[in-house]
Design a protein around this nucleic acid. Structure first.
Lengths: 347, 347
DNA sequence: GGAAAATGTGGAACTAATTCCATATATCAA
DNA sequence: TTGATATATGGAATTAGTTCCACATTTTCC
């Protein structure tokens, strides 16, 4: 049984004090200046490092936050994690990471593992809330926060899809567009299929009667959008809005291949990330979701619960980042927004 | 001092056995079938969960692997992490994640923190190895593996840049190209600036005397490459190879804006990721580094060290993924590789 | 039949910290 | 000069497990 090189006991003996005194030096103070100096020297000399497990056994605080993510290989998740870490690390918390691989079952298993590990709180970027999720949030003694999904019974944080749609609608209205095609996904996806679309309609049509929005249904992927692009061409709107950036990218590529000039002949806009859209030509105007900020908010929220302040202090509005680039024409000005000096920013 | 709901003592009392017996039930066996049943029932009834910290205090094994990453918001890192997790999780290990924000100082600090946390091993996707890194790998009692950097004195894993360059060189030679421009970065970056470039030259010129390679130096970013594109045009090669995908993308965009047709008039190729390159038009042919595989190899390597098998079993070759898309013309066939049915795969 | 080996079991020690409690001074007001 | 309070300090208990050791059975083998 290989044991720890230097323990608090060794330090105490070398400094000529008791273990309690060393512990007090390490924690709350209540120690004379004289002994303080002795202990400091002894710690320096021995290179003492406090044993994490012994400490946690007694204090029942791990300073560890469990995080369950649906996947790791997406920019979205990376940004989210980046935001979480940015808040947690300065507070002395560290993250334990588990991946659910988009499976609800693995998600619940991961939560269980984390709870057993003794994490102080759990943050789940959930793929779908079940009754079990809600039961745990109530019965387990530790704070649990869900992101990506919404349920009034638990702590959660989600992007405001309706607001995002609305924002885009207002922008296109202000740019003088009157006839749009919304290339969206099935309504079975409540957030993207319904909230985002209806938000867009509201923003686009607000305060006028001469606006028109047509719908074309596509899948979530690039290719499916590409295949629907011909149909959109037939409708011949002044602008096409893809419900996700992938959709917009598929449409953009179709236009490229057919020699349809964007935005001169037709404008294109999207929703989502902000990496891919920046390098295509023309760069895609989009409502970007600031996942990094979302991560920061989620982490702050969690810390608040942890401190018993019950999340009142945190502003939970999830601001959207409107990224105006080159793919939408301003019909009010009748000038081309492109020139070689206004290159899109790369991430 | 709020204490644990159910401890091993409670289980022992309920089952009418000693603590030792319950512990044996939980671990190595050596318990009669009769008591085994009793203990099982007691555990079920009480919902007992073993205390992580108490267990680890005695066993000195955390089943936790510390990971230090330079940043979180890049696809590259996401893939790496994805690969690591894929190997570690089935083995019962979990990851603690820390971010160095591309700073060597924070990287060392993070390693220190992880060591204090009592992780079983540390994996560092390093931004640069210092003497301190090497000292720690030797002096700390726990296995440390560095990726992204190379040093014979420590365990490390790195992509073979020379091989990647060579691969691309051979491909372009086989496609019938004779005059290339290599748009590269400064030689102060050994991996990208020297190894990759020289590998390319070797592969491109191999076995012939009529090949010519010109160099144009750019920065790492999109914009800097874009600004050098005019100079490349003056040289008028049949193919431009960017040392990274960002460089290729910048060049591609310049060509687009000037109406230079790719690959009909000039071919373009790159090195690196495989996400962005797929959606531009034309899709970029590239040597992709399989970071996910690298993560898996790194994790396996680490597990081997942990088990004392000292990394002999693992095959450390880092295979490269050649992604042939649309941006390079086959001069041997004199046909255009593009048509609307051969769309690039989206990730 | 009896020694030797295998199989179970409980008690106590141990892991490395924190923290409660008792006690010893030192400071200060009455 | 007391008594009361504040400041320091050490000893012992506590945290929840694992593991060593002693001892009691039972089984095996000569």
């Amino acid at each position: 049984m290989e044991q720890q090189k230097v323990t608090i006991k060794d330090v105490a003996e070398l400094a000529g004090v008791s273990k309690s005194t060393v512990s007090r030096y390490l924690n709350n103070g209540y120690i004379s200046a004289e002994k303080q100096a002795k202990v400091r020297k002894a710690i320096e000399k021995t290179g003492f490092q406090s044993n994490f497990f012994a400490k946690r056994l007694k204090t029942r605080e791990s300073k560890l936050i469990g995080i369950v993510l649906p996947r790791m290989d997406s920019v979205t998740v990376g940004k989210l994690l980046s935001g979480i870490t940015r808040v947690l690390e300065p507070e002395g918390y560290q993250s334990i990471l588990l991946v659910s691989q988009l499976s609800q079952k693995k998600e619940l298993e991961s939560m269980q593992k984390l709870q057993q590990q003794g994490v102080d709180a759990i943050l789940v970027d959930s793929v779908g809330l079940t009754d079990e999720h809600i039961r745990r949030a109530k019965e387990w003694g530790l704070p649990i926060l869900y992101t990506g999904q919404k349920n009034a019974a638990v702590h959660c944080l989600k992007i405001d899809d309706a607001a995002a749609g609305h924002r885009m609608g207002v922008y296109l209205r202000q740019m003088g567009h009157k006839h749009a095609v919304f290339a969206g996904v099935t309504e079975s996806d409540e957030a993207v299929g319904i909230e985002r679309k209806e938000g867009f309609m509201a923003g686009f049509c607000e305060g006028r009667t001469d606006a028109k929005v047509d719908f074309v249904e596509t899948g979530f992927d690039f290719l499916s959008a590409y295949n629907q692009a011909e149909e959109i061409c037939k409708i011949a709107p002044s602008v096409v809005v893809g419900a996700t950036d992938n959709i917009s990218l598929g449409i953009l590529r179709y236009f490229h291949e057919r020699g349809v000039k964007v935005p001169e002949e037709i404008s294109v806009a999207g929703f989502g990330g902000y990496d891919v859209g920046a390098v295509v030509y023309p760069a895609l105007t989009t409502v970007a979701f600031d996942y990094e900020l979302m991560g920061m908010k989620a982490a702050s929220y969690l810390l608040n619960i942890l401190r018993g302040e019950d999340a009142k202090l945190t502003n939970l509005d999830m601001p959207l980042l409107f990224v105006e680039r080159e793919s939408v024409q301003n019909l009010m000005k009748k000038t081309l927004p492109i020139n070689s000096t206004s290159l899109p920013a790369m991430m």
